[in-house]
C-alpha cells in the first residue's frame, strides 16, 4: 500500500442528521456511489485527506524509482534491462497522473515536492529498504507491487473521480509489473543453486516489510472509519494484509521458497492463513526516518530537485523571452 496511516483531521464520524444540508447532500452522493468531481463542493476534511493520501501515493511512486533504478545499469540481460526501464518509467508516469489528480484539489506539484523534501509528507515505508541483489528486483515486482495492487484495485472505486480514474490505468500497469517480477524469480529458481539462494534471501528480507506496507491494524482508528465513510478507503488494513498473505503464500510454495514466518499455518476454519505479527517497532522506526535508506532516498530526491533548478529556470526564462517576443510582434 503506497499510502499509510493517512490522517483525516476528524475526531469522530458524524451521522447524516448532524450534518449541514450541503454536507449531507455530499455524503448522500458518496453513499449512492456517485463520483465527486474537482469543482464540486466537498468538506474541507475530505479535500485535505485526499491531498494527503494522493500526494503520499505520488511521492511513493517517485521515490520508488530509486531502489529499482539502482539495478537498471546491472540488469543481467538486454531484455531484463528493457523490462525494468519500462517498469520504472511506468512508475514515474503513475507519479505524474497522481500529482495531476492531487492538483485538481488546489495544491501545486511544487508545493507537494516541498512537503516531501521537508519531511512533512511521507511516502511508503517499503522504499526505505535497500535493493541488494538482482533478486530484489523480482521480489519488489512480486511482493511490493502485489501488495500495492491489493490496495489499488478497490481505489478504482474511490469516491473522488480523478483519483479513481488515475487508478484504473495504474492498476493495469501494476499487474504487468507483478507478473514480470514473478517471472524473473521463476527463471532464477529454475537456474543454478546460487540463483535460488539469491531469491530465498530476497524473500527473507522483503516478506515482513511487504506485510508492513498495509500499515498497523486500523480497525479502531477514527481516521480509517472516516476515510471509509467517504469511500476513500474501502477495506481495513488487516483485511488487505490477510488477502495478500492468502494470495502470496501459494506462489512462494510454487517457487519452492520458504516464507520466513514460523507461525505461518493454514487455518481451515477461516479459510485463510494464520501468520505472525510484523515487527511494528521496526515499522514505526522506518516511518520516523530511521529505516536503512531513508536519508539516502530523501537526499537523492532533494539533490535531483536542487541540481535541476538551473534547468527549470532556464526553460522558464526561455518561455518568458518567447512570450515577450510574440507580444512585441503583435
Amino acid at each position: 500500500m503506497y499510502a499509510q496511516m493517512v490522517k483525516t483531521d476528524g475526531t469522530r464520524v458524524r451521522s447524516l442528521d448532524e450534518m449541514e444540508p450541503h454536507e449531507r447532500a455530499f455524503q448522500e452522493r458518496v453513499d449512492a456511489g456517485q463520483k465527486i468531481e474537482p469543482k464540486e463542493w466537498m468538506p474541507d476534511g475530505y479535500r485535505k485527506t485526499l491531498v494527503r493520501q494522493i500526494s503520499q501515493h505520488a511521492h511513493s511512486e517517485i521515490v520508488g524509482q530509486l531502489p529499482e533504478g539502482n539495478w537498471i545499469s546491472r540488469a543481467p540481460t538486454l531484455e531484463r534491462k528493457a523490462i525494468l526501464l519500462a517498469k520504472v518509467q511506468d512508475e514515474a508516469g503513475h507519479g505524474l497522473y497522481l500529482y495531476c489528480a492531487a492538483e485538481t484539489l488546489g495544491i501545486s506539484r511544487d508545493e507537494m515536492y516541498e512537503q516531501l523534501h521537508s519531511g512533512k509528507a511521507k511516502y511508503s515505508s517499503i522504499f526505505n529498504y535497500p535493493t541488494l541483489t538482482w533478486a530484489d528486483i523480482g521480489a519488489i515486482g512480486w511482493l511490493v507491487d502485489g501488495a500495492a495492487i491489493m490496495n489499488q484495485v478497490p481505489l478504482q472505486r474511490c469516491s473522488y473521480g480523478p483519483y479513481a480514474r488515475a487508478m484504473v490505468r495504474i492498476c493495469k500497469e501494476e499487474s504487468f509489473h507483478q507478473r514480470q517480477g514473478f517471472d524473473a524469480l521463476m527463471r532464477m529458481v529454475k537456474g543454478i543453486p546460487a540463483q535460488k539462494a539469491m531469491v530465498q534471501d530476497a524473500l527473507n528480507r522483503w516478506w515482513w516489510p511487504s506485510l508492513m506496507m498495509f500499515g498497523p491494524s486500523d480497525d479502531a482508528s477514527v481516521h480509517s472509519v472516516q476515510s471509509m465513510a467517504w469511500k476513500i478507503k474501502q477495506n481495513s488494513n488487516d483485511e488487505l494484509r490477510q488477502k495478500f498473505v492468502d494470495q502470496t503464500v501459494p506462489q512462494a510454495e510454487y517457487l519452492g521458497l520458504t516464507v520466513p514466518d514460523p507461525d505461518l499455518k493454514w487455518n481451515e476454519e477461516k479459510g485463510g492463513y494464520d501468520f505472525g505479527e510484523p515487527d511494528w517497532e521496526e515499522f514505526f522506526n522506518v516511518i520516523a526516518g530511521n529505516g536503512p535508506c531513508n536519508a539516502e532516498r530523501l537526499n537523492a530526491r532533494k539533490q535531483a530537485w536542487d541540481d535541476g533548478a538551473w534547468f527549470r529556470d532556464g526553460l522558464t526564462a526561455h518561455a518568458q523571452k518567447t512570450a515577450a517576443h510574440s507580444v512585441a510582434a503583435e
Binding site: 517517485i62 533504478g69 505524474l96 537523492a300 535531483a304 535541476g308 534547468f311 527549470r312
Partner: peptide, 12 residues
C-alpha cells in the same frame, strides 16, 4: 539518470 532528472517529465 533514472530517478534523478530535474523534472518528472524528464525522468519519463
Amino acid at each position: 539518470w533514472c530517478g534523478h532528472a530535474p523534472a518528472l517529465e524528464e525522468d519519463i
